[in-house]
Design a protein around this nucleic acid. Structure first.
Lengths: 204, 204
DNA sequence: GTCTATAGGCAGATAGAC
DNA sequence: GTCTATCTGCCTATAGAC
């Protein structure tokens, strides 16, 4: 008589993920406890275990939701030009850091060795999907004539992901969003076909 | 009658730092215990407390030693050309990852929010020194005519540090040293004065 | 400098009532 | 779904003997 709303997740479950997410993205997966979440939500610890049997299951749900939301956001610019899509991709990292958070999967990448197999696989999958998405955008940009760069698609995708993840680390350390912003500008310039290229082309 | 050898640190103390260092660089500062170190060295936990009163002191010593060794290594190329010095800088990151380790301060940067004030300051100082050292090398390279790039010295230094740190994260995730190697190549190319620049110069 | 023994706290997790 | 009560284990740290 009171079926779960289709596609719904349950209010409490969702709130738990919200609080846990913020904790992981600022302190790391191994540096918060069920007690922290319970206190924030004025719940008891066993209530948490009802929704997520163990911390590993909570962590897995966290990555899967992050992954889903991330690519859902990216899908809103599917029809745009490559340069717009790439700028939007970078803006997601900036938005996260502006909320005083780190990338969830970046944090988990640092703690990788301490994660359960399922969590490790989900984290890898997130970066796989990032690499694939970026490769698509880079290809699109070359076809549109706005992008130009050396090396393979996946290599360049990895450079972009690495720079953004590393830059977030540094930007938080110095509490300076500009460090990330500068990296973004640099990355965009690094793939943008410039007048320089045109000069080079005509010179050959 | 048995004074500490000048500049010496004590065998046991040094061994503790060795073991702790490897643990932090693979699992993170909050994901290992005194028990882990004690077991590895066949010592008791209180023996560890004799050398380092608390975990925070151990962590601080760890960062300071890492910092010292890092810049000691860099000093061996003080007299070289900028391109050699920058390649050597990058090779340090590669060496660390090849030993199945992450950058100590990169790991601590991820756990930054959970560290004591003194540890936080030491980590920041490490990256300060990196930024400064890189700025010096970049300046030298421009003076030598082998480097050329846009933006400020510190911005470029931050881009280099960020890329290397982020790239280590990704490379370990995929157990693929080439991911870091590719980033290094890309960074070096990004600051190297190319024939492209000469063409541009003559075109202006 | 290193040990045994142990304190005191917090972690993740379970039993069973409501 | 949520609670109180509790378990077990591990953590950092200390006391005090050798």
């Amino acid at each position: 008589m009171k079926p779960r709303p289709a596609g719904g997740e349950g209010r409490t479950r969702s709130q738990i993920l919200d609080v846990a997410g913020r904790l992981v993205q600022s302190r790391g997966f191994n540096n918060f406890s069920y007690a922290d979440i319970a206190a924030t939500l004025s719940l008891s610890k066993p209530a948490l275990h009802y929704h997520f049997p163990g911390k590993a299951e909570l962590g897995l749900a966290l990555v899967q939701r992050y992954d889903q939301r991330f690519f859902e956001a990216l899908s809103t610019v599917d029809e745009k030009r490559a340069s717009v899509r790439l700028e939007f991709y970078a803006s997601l990292y900036i938005s996260v850091l502006r909320e005083q958070r780190m990338c969830l999967c970046g944090m988990l990448a640092a703690e990788f060795k301490t994660l359960t197999e399922p969590m490790q696989q989900s984290v890898v999958q997130f970066f796989d999907r990032n690499t694939e998405w970026l490769s698509g955008v880079l290809t699109q940009g070359m076809n549109e004539g706005t992008f130009s760069f050396d090396g393979s698609l996946s290599d360049r995708a990895h450079v972009i992901i690495s720079s953004l993840e590393g830059s977030m680390l540094l930007a938080r350390l110095y509490d300076d969003l500009d460090i990330l912003q500068t990296t973004v500008t640099h990355l965009l310039a690094g793939v943008t076909a410039s007048q320089l290229d045109e000069i080079t082309d005509s010179a050959m």
